[in-house]
Design a protein around this nucleic acid. Structure first.
Length: 259
DNA sequence: GCACATGTTCTCGG
DNA sequence: CCCGAGAACATGTG
């Protein structure tokens, strides 16, 4: 998402901001958001875990998080009551943020101010080192699946990629972090990175809602091995994929080859 | 009506 | 203090 949004946003100025009605979605209220954003230019676009952060000309930042059903697309969308934020950066150059469930977030961070949401994040999943995971895992006794979903342990892995990475690593999601061997942790770190890299290369996973900024569907859902595959044959062994609730989240794994 | 949903944060017990 | 369970946020699909 960040890569596709860079050419649309970086170096351009925000001419107009259109907000939907106040809601849970707006960490910064719509009125204030308009006031602080209009007239600024975007210097740079970064990603921290699942958050996209734009650095603005006055030193402030704009944080965007998709939540469960968020869509960030570089075009105007039909006003269907789910488009909460539109940034206009010149004629027909528009970024729209649509989110049906409104679990997504828009937050403006004043110059020099800290953002609790960002400060809490652990090391980024895309470059995670085994040693970092080992350190995090040793001081907890929780299911490894729960640990991977905890953004303070590791930033950027969600329910789909936690299940996919643990399947690739051959580790059962319910295993306690404290009881994993070094080799197992190395394998998890490697597969987290690999699954995420491949997912990015395929444009992300569209289950129902996700759209790439260019408006197309992602393609990685066609490469999922376990997520949403309950009852299907495992691709690594002769087992069948089961679904079980772990850490209050639906968890998919193969009981036969994930130990 | 029921189950479930790509996320995060909080409370309440044990 | 650690941890799991459950709930909350809001709205849709099958």
């Amino acid at each position: 998402m960040r890569r596709q949004l860079v050419p649309v946003l970086v170096g351009r100025s925000i001419n107009q901001v259109v907000c939907g009605p106040p809601s849970y979605f707006f960490v910064t209220p719509p009125g204030k958001l308009k006031r602080v954003l209009v007239g600024q230019s975007v210097r740079d676009l970064s990603r921290y875990g699942k958050a996209i952060v734009a650095s603005l000309s006055d030193g402030s930042q704009l944080l965007l998080h998709l939540g469960m059903t968020g869509q960030l697309v570089a075009r105007a969308l039909p006003q269907d009551g789910h488009v909460h934020l539109v940034l206009e950066l010149g004629k027909s150059r528009v970024v729209s943020f649509r989110d049906v469930r409104k679990f997504g977030k828009v937050e403006w961070i004043a110059p020099g101010k800290k953002c609790a949401r960002l400060d809490r994040l652990g090391p980024d999943a895309l470059n995670i080192e085994p040693e970092q995971l080992w350190t995090q895992f040793r001081r907890r006794r929780i299911a490894v699946k729960t640990a991977l979903l905890n953004q303070q342990v590791l930033a950027g892995v969600g329910n789909i990629y936690a299940d996919e990475a643990l399947h690739s690593a051959g580790i059962r999601p319910t295993r306690s972090t404290a009881r994993l061997t070094r080799k197992e942790v190395e394998s998890i770190a490697r597969e987290v990175r690999d699954v995420l890299r491949r997912a990015v290369a395929h444009g992300g996973s569209t289950i129902n809602d996700y759209l790439k900024p260019d408006g197309d569907l992602g393609g990685f859902q066609d490469w999922h091995q376990v997520y949403g595959k309950e009852g299907e044959a495992c691709t690594r062994c002769l087992g069948r994929i089961v679904r079980k609730v772990v850490g209050a989240r639906s968890t998919h794994f193969c009981p036969s080859c994930q130990r």
